[in-house]
Simulated scan of single mutants.
Amino acid sequence: MYIKRILGIIVLLGIIGGGLFAAMVYRTFFNANTAFTEETVYVYVPTDASYAAVLEQLQPLLKDSDAFDAVARRKGYADRVRPGRYPLERGMNNNEIVNALRSRNTPLTVSFNNQERLEDLAGRIGAQIEADSASLLQAMTDPEFLKARGWTQDQALLPYLPNSYEFYWNTDAEAFRDRMLKEYDRYWTEERKQLARAQGLTPEQAIALAAVVHKETARPEERPRVAGVYLNRLKQGIPLQADPTVIFAIKKTTGRWDTVIKRVLYKDLELDSPYNTYMHKGVPPGPIFMPDLSAVNAVLRPERHNYLFFVADVENFGYHIFAETLAQHNRNKAQYIRWIDQQNIRR
């Protein structure tokens, strides 16, 4: 009888102990363990990050990092850290957090607009994904990559069409570049290539000309008309004589990219640069800017007219006055010169 009583107590204690252990395990795995108030926060795990580095990043987000650590080790996450951007939701338990870090690498939207140089683009992208600006710039200007497309360094800006794209945060530089090349090729359908050929342009020339059109007018509705002017000049063998190309040539020659030039002077037109379209006929050797697709589409589908000239309309800012003859243009230009002199704009 005494032995049975002892055995009963032992069994009872075992049940109680097992229950307590089970309760402890349950709490460790399944009790909410987030310490943030936002609905969702993101954890960014760099490539080759150690588990210790991930745990350090998680500590401010957790009520009990030791409990998380126990679950992470139990589930094998500590030995299989994966890079990426992972969402954690308020109220998650340790089991859910580990599962999220293992399998919920979530893409983000990468956006960029009209950059003037690859250096600017690389900086913009490097602020949004893991790849840094230096590695991005190296990938973008890689001679072998450009050679494979038959492009020069002047054309290295071509494949980056301003828009918003979905990427994983841990995308590396070459993967970003190659994805943008695919987007470029996807844009240049056979129909668009035919439209470019109809204007006497290659896709590369169409984008280079679109950059000039975009720089000339900020009004998308006016771009087909401006594009028509430049295409008329190209077909007649007349230099484009586009001030934005001269401004670009000055910046490229001096290396002073932050220079603000509001007025092109006659002496600037003497700068011997392939981008000086007063001195050299045809389309510039590469884009002076990253044009909107509206500008590219304007070049592909220009307004048909006989205009060869245009100048800013000082009575309707943002728009231009167009002319078919030099005499008409000179009269239109006079009003602009008077206005710019009155504003005391010397450069």
Rank of each mutant, 00 (worst) to 15 (best):
R73Q: 10
Q155S: 06
K147G: 07
K193I: 00
I261H: 05
K215S: 14
M92E: 09
N95S: 14
L201F: 09
K215R: 15
N163S: 12
A208Q: 07
Y275K: 03
E116C: 02
R74V: 01
E222T: 08
E38M: 01
T152D: 12
L201K: 02
D79H: 11
V264Q: 12
G318Q: 03
A148Q: 13
G286K: 10
R186C: 01
L101I: 08
F29S: 06
L146Q: 13
L300S: 03
L240D: 09
S133H: 12
L118M: 02
V246H: 05
Y168K: 04
Q194N: 11
L62K: 06
N163M: 00
Y307K: 11
I3P: 00
G8K: 13
Y319Q: 09
H280N: 14
V54T: 08
G282Q: 07
A67R: 15
R80C: 01
E116S: 05
E221T: 10
A249L: 13
V229E: 09
A196E: 06
Q57C: 00
G17P: 12
Y230M: 13
R347P: 00
F36D: 06
R117A: 03
T189P: 02
Q335F: 12
I15G: 06
T28G: 06
P60A: 12
A323K: 08
W169K: 05
A131L: 02
R304Y: 01
I238G: 04
A211Q: 04
A122M: 10
G126L: 08
H280V: 10
A295Y: 05
G14N: 09
V98L: 05
D79V: 01
P60E: 07
N170A: 11
D172K: 03
L181D: 12
V229R: 08
S103Y: 14
Y275E: 02
R74I: 03
D185K: 13
S50N: 09
L20M: 12
K193T: 13
A298W: 10
F145W: 14
Q155K: 06
V296L: 14
E144T: 14
Q138W: 00
R179T: 14
Y42E: 08
Q138S: 15
I337Y: 11
E324V: 12
P143Q: 03
Q342M: 11
L12D: 05
T253E: 14
V314L: 01
R346Y: 11
A100L: 02
H214K: 10
